[in-house]
Design a protein around this nucleic acid. Structure first.
Lengths: 173, 173
DNA sequence: AAGTTTCGTTCGCCTTTCTAAGTATAGTAC
DNA sequence: GTACTATACTTAGAAAGGCGAACGAAACTT
């Protein structure tokens, strides 16, 4: 991990430091999302479904949701159940292909999404928009770079990751 | 959110884009951690406990763990139960204060931590170390900046976040 | 028309997480 | 020293997220 421990100027390895920063980011957002979801009377997972729905123009199929969330279809079914039972969305059979179901966001669901802005947004946006122009550009470039570095698409020698088939060894009790 | 929609050069708002990048990062790491934990025969939460233990010199109290993880003590109890039942850690009453219990990492637990390097590490480190020197420095600075922007410490008007007391309104069924 | 694939649901199971209610130990006050 | 209070942890019970396997229905293929 420490490649150039010799560079005496830096107290710690940059790789380490960047990992630490990344974990801080992760941790902060995780805590926020719990928080926020509670504030809106929804669980994080349910809110995520609503957000995806909203981002897709108000409707999506369970399959699409599952892929988007990196979760099994069965899981989506139960999430949608709960959302539907709260009247925040409705299931509608597709006309074109009747195997498909469209989960459609209701007004009340839209409100929920608006009222509970994304955990990140809440805090991050304020800070981001206070930055100088070039700082914003810089930050954006860096984030996109990191995202690209982590993204599931361009995997080479890493464990499987294709959404929905997580394979892999034994699973003890 | 869109402050300078007028700047026609950019297809989208930088704030939006950076949020999207951030979500990609989050999503990628979330998927990875599931994956990785499974590969090691542990669940993500259990692995997190082991990692924290390791980072604390091999032992910590449930209370400390709970705080570190942003989770209730009862939750830690059940996580520790499972870890202990797999022989990866041991509970030991504290001599000084017998109300306290120390959760101590066993050799087998240490192995697990080493064998299952952090979800981020796995992938990120490889990519990071391929970057040019100035790129690394740049990225690190950006990440730390974002982390600072999100961190719980310097909150002003945002929802509570002090680890362990997540307060906040009603929680529907 | 029979077989195959795809989509979604149902079922049974496990894990995480919470709150509320205990139990034991430590500290403090009288 | 006995009684209160605070702290550290566990237990118990419930809800939620998540999975794979099995299933019914609709759409393709041959």
């Amino acid at each position: 991990m420490a490649f150039y421990t010799a560079m005496t100027d830096q107290p710690r390895d940059r790789t380490d430091d960047s990992l630490i920063a990344l974990r801080r980011i992760l941790r902060a957002t995780e805590l926020y999302s719990r928080n926020l979801a509670q504030a809106s009377g929804l669980t994080p997972a349910q809110l995520r479904v609503l957000q995806i729905l909203a981002s897709q123009g108000g409707s999506a199929t369970p399959k699409a949701l599952a892929q988007r969330m990196g979760v099994a279809q069965a899981t989506v079914t139960s999430l949608v159940d709960k959302i539907v039972s709260r009247g925040m969305a409705t299931r509608m059979r597709s006309e074109a292909d009747r195997r498909q179901t469209n989960v459609v966001l209701n007004p009340s669901g839209q409100e929920a999404v608006i009222a509970a802005p994304d955990a990140l947004q809440q805090r991050y946006v304020r800070a981001f928009e206070k930055l100088k122009d070039w700082e914003q550009a810089q930050l954006l470039a860096s984030l996109e770079r990191v995202a690209a570095m982590l993204d599931a698409d361009d995997i080479d020698a890493a464990p499987v990751l294709t959404t929905g088939e997580i394979k892999m060894g034994d699973r003890l009790t």
